[in-house]
Design a binder for these strands. Structure first.
Lengths: 107, 107
DNA sequence: CAGTTACGTAACTCGATGGTTAACTACAGC
DNA sequence: GCTGTAGTTAACCATCGAGTTACGTAACTG
């Protein structure tokens, strides 16, 4: 559940939002933020270490793309709390989620 | 989206999980953790300040209960990323979630 | 090969955070 | 009105995290 830690920082959250739109090289990412490049570089490292982001090198550029797996895990955690703000429709959602998971386990 | 910050700490996450099962007084909460009472008290304060928890005083006891509103907000944020790990069932879920939201807005 | 471009790492500063113990507040019971 | 119990606040300390500047490294470009 380390995604929580990674996403606690607003800059990192915005990087994730940015990459949701499509992959970007480090320079472009940095250009969106008022902090220095090294700072962004470290944020990217944290995101990478938490599995939220992957980098593929192209010449001297580093192209970053989103890896949503940890977000899915987070979603699973949250699923346990949906009953707290749910109505009938949400109950159905839960049902669907459960069946999906089961199907995954079954093969 | 301050819930991320509050939930970055594992102890606070476990407190939330604990309260999902039902309300508890501060003493009982503290008994579940290896840290001192004041430490737990501060965690509870952080959770309170982030709206994740509410305290109702009963005599000299303070009874804490979960407030899942910030979790719902978090869920909304995550919803924007479900497409990244979704399949047909998830698409249906999203559809359901959308209709629920719309219904809430409409009346 | 020299220079420029694109990134990352290193070393450092500094405020935030989480932990502790000690002191304070509020209530119940004798 | 003391005494014990439940909990929070205060003061303090150590560590962590995010920011900065300076430097290192890899690749393209003339």
């Amino acid at each position: 559940m380390g995604a929580f830690e990674a996403l606690a920082d607003p800059t990192r959250r915005r990087i994730v939002e940015l990459l949701a739109d499509g992959e970007r090289d480090a320079g472009e990412i940095a250009s969106y933020f008022p902090v220095s490049r090294p700072a962004v570089s470290r944020h990217l490292r944290v995101l990478r270490e938490h599995g939220l982001v992957r980098s593929r090198g192209d010449a001297q550029r580093r192209i970053y793309s989103l890896d949503a797996a940890p977000l899915a895990e987070l979603d699973e955690w949250l699923a346990g709390y949906r009953t707290f703000w749910s109505n009938r429709l949400d109950a159905l959602e839960t049902q669907l989620r459960r069946s999906r998971r089961q199907r995954k386990e079954t093969g």
